[in-house]
Amino acid sequence: MRIAILEDEAVLAEQLSGVLERAGHICYCYSKGSAIIADLKRETFDLLILDWNLPDTTGIDVLRWVREHIDHVPPILFVTSRGEESDIVEALDMGADDYVVKPVQTGEVLARVGALFRRSYPSKGKDIEIFGDHQFEQKSTSVTVSGEQIILTPKEFGLALLLFQNLDRALSRAYILEKVWGRNPDLLTRTLDAHISRIRVKLSLRPESGFRLLPVYSYGYRLEKLNQGEE
């Protein structure tokens, strides 16, 4: 999973990112609220870890901005030295999903992150995932549409499944590339565009079939599930 860590203590940020990356996650660290907000405007993350006290703002202000400006808000974990009950209540009331008081035990943070992912992304990891007439089988990397098997390459399969797992959610180009091709892939933009074009055709991702695969200007792509009669 792709995790953004907002923490102005460099040692703690490195400690948190280290334990999470060893668990298989990809982490991006920020020391200022303005920096993470700038990236949230153009990037997609699966989870946010926020400190409260920051050089330029507060974690609460960042949380407020996220709730006001991001359509699909990822789970949010506060990791902060502020341990008063009133602080915890304020963060949770503002929309935080969990709260850890410093000094932190990295094992506890890892367990809480795992719990948030299981709760927020319950369908991911299943061998067979079904989205209407589209059925994905992970072991065989095969897809059937209305009972008809569709031949996809492994990358096409991974891209299509990622889009279906995130229906109606805009995904940034960097997020898609990392999820499907790995971190920092040496790929041209047209590689992703070509794969998008192929799965749009192969899986009939068009309004008449109930789906619409759209580019999001200066951001990435979004697969929308249409209501009956909507075009």
Rank of each mutant, 00 (worst) to 15 (best):
I3A: 08
I5Y: 04
L6R: 09
E7K: 03
A10Q: 11
V11W: 03
L12A: 11
A13Q: 02
Q15K: 12
L16I: 15
L16Y: 01
G18P: 02
V19R: 14
R22C: 08
R22T: 12
A23L: 01
H25S: 09
H25I: 02
H25E: 05
Y28A: 15
C29F: 00
C29W: 00
Y30N: 07
Y30C: 09
Y30L: 09
S34K: 14
D39C: 00
E43S: 10
D46K: 04
L47M: 12
L50C: 08
W52S: 02
N53M: 14
L54T: 06
G59W: 06
V62H: 04
R64I: 08
H69P: 01
D71W: 03
P75N: 08
P75T: 12
T80E: 11
R82Q: 14
S86T: 09
V89N: 11
D97W: 04
Y99H: 05
Y99E: 03
V100K: 01
P103E: 05
P103F: 04
P103H: 06
V104T: 12
Q105W: 03
T106M: 15
G107H: 11
R112C: 07
V113D: 09
V113T: 13
A115P: 00
A115N: 15
A115G: 10
A115C: 02
I128L: 14
I130S: 10
G132F: 04
E137C: 09
T144L: 11
V145L: 13
V145N: 06
G147P: 06
I151H: 12
L159Y: 09
L161Q: 12
L161C: 01
L161M: 09
A170D: 13
K179E: 15
V180Q: 05
V180D: 05
W181R: 06
G182T: 03
L187K: 14
L188A: 11
T189Q: 15
H195V: 00
I199G: 06
I199F: 04
R200A: 14
R206C: 04
S209P: 00
G210E: 05
F211P: 00
R212A: 15
P215L: 07
Y217L: 12
Y221W: 15
Y221M: 02
G229C: 07
